[in-house]
Design a protein around this nucleic acid. Structure first.
Lengths: 195, 195
DNA sequence: ACGCCTATCTTGGCATTGACAAGATACTTG
DNA sequence: CAAGTATCTTGTCAATGCCAAGATAGGCGT
């Protein structure tokens, strides 16, 4: 399956291009993320990506999907590192903010409405968005009283997601200092959601 | 001061360009916001903007500053439409979310870290960012018990800003439904901040 | 009033980019 | 082994951001 690096047919170009794009995103920022630069970095011609991704947005969507997977994985890991439902919710929230701060360009890509639009269904990003929604709802549900109605769970989850996302954005863009995240989230979370 | 529309020297190009950019942003979205398109719309040559704004980012920063002014004005108006400190805080928050939903491209421009970076001081956007911070702190302070320490005011303001901003972003990008804003914010605000 | 001066605007040009078209190459399947 | 197809390349085009140089006009001192 894996073939010579110098063969005409790359053999794994789609993946290689995604990784080149990710590397460029990390090293040079999103402004350097041109299709041609990605192709150059992967060592192929400027038009090679089109066969695999259709257009620029196609590649970006794949990269965003990869980022979404990583974000979800980070939250799952963080959540599963404790047992108390409330601590699990807090841990996942911190993981979210940390991910945004440590991968700002990727985080921005994930929430770029031109790339990941939850309303127009996309086979690559769509399922991941749903998986994140579900993870959030589950984690919140576990922290609420058992008899809580599903509607209330969803409302609470939405409010919480908003708070966590907002802090993540404002901290990662340096509008807020990172030191406010912990006290801020704790004050918001210790409210009335959790027993 | 105002001169003929057809004269060689426009007389008010900077403002005209800002307005053309805003119009393009509203009508065509941020992807259509090229310097040349703005110049075309203003009826001048493709290089006329450079004298006034230096480069593309310069123009965008001016547009973002205009947006920041509008956002602040909307919040002030909303806040001053009621008298109870808590209702004033709620009203300003809703105005923030509404502004984001009704002016998504402009809102994105305002919080684009390439355009409005709070860390590298900018004479046009910097003071406005501070004014918004101050407005937020004041409005929060009025809603907290009088003896609240300034540090706590700032922390609370940061947490609240995060929650409001996150809801604004997620709603305006359609990740969340607008119907969650009111119950979400109210549940977050009725917590422990307000007497 | 006259002429220079400078801010303002235009034309021309260059490198880069996203996208399309057509050709070259190599894997694969019958 | 030959035909077919997926993959990759070269060539090209319009659009864009920006730089350089020229054109125009309003303001200034004399």
């Amino acid at each position: 399956m894996s073939r010579s690096n110098v063969s005409y047919h790359h053999g794994n170009l789609a993946v290689a291009l995604e990784e080149a794009a990710l590397a460029l995103l990390v090293e040079e920022g999103s402004s350097a993320l041109s299709l041609r630069a990605v192709a150059r970095r992967a060592g192929v011609s400027h038009n090679a990506p089109y066969h695999h991704f259709g257009d620029r947005q196609g590649l970006l969507k794949s990269v965003a999907a990869r980022g979404l997977r990583d974000l979800l994985a980070a939250m799952v890991t963080a959540r599963d590192s404790t047992s108390s439902p409330k601590q699990r919710l807090l841990a996942a929230s911190f993981a979210y903010v940390d991910f945004a701060s440590e991968n700002r360009p990727l985080f921005e890509l994930i929430f770029d409405p031109e790339i990941c639009n939850p309303k127009e269904p996309n086979p690559v990003t769509g399922p991941l968005i749903e998986a994140n929604d579900e993870f959030l709802a589950e984690t919140v549900r576990a922290a609420l009283p058992q008899e809580t109605a599903e509607t209330d769970v969803r409302t609470t989850a939405a409010a919480l997601w908003g708070a966590v996302h907002g802090l993540a954005v404002l901290v990662s863009t340096q509008h807020l200092d990172a030191s406010v995240v912990r006290p801020g989230l704790e004050s918001l979370l210790e409210l009335r959601f959790l027993e």
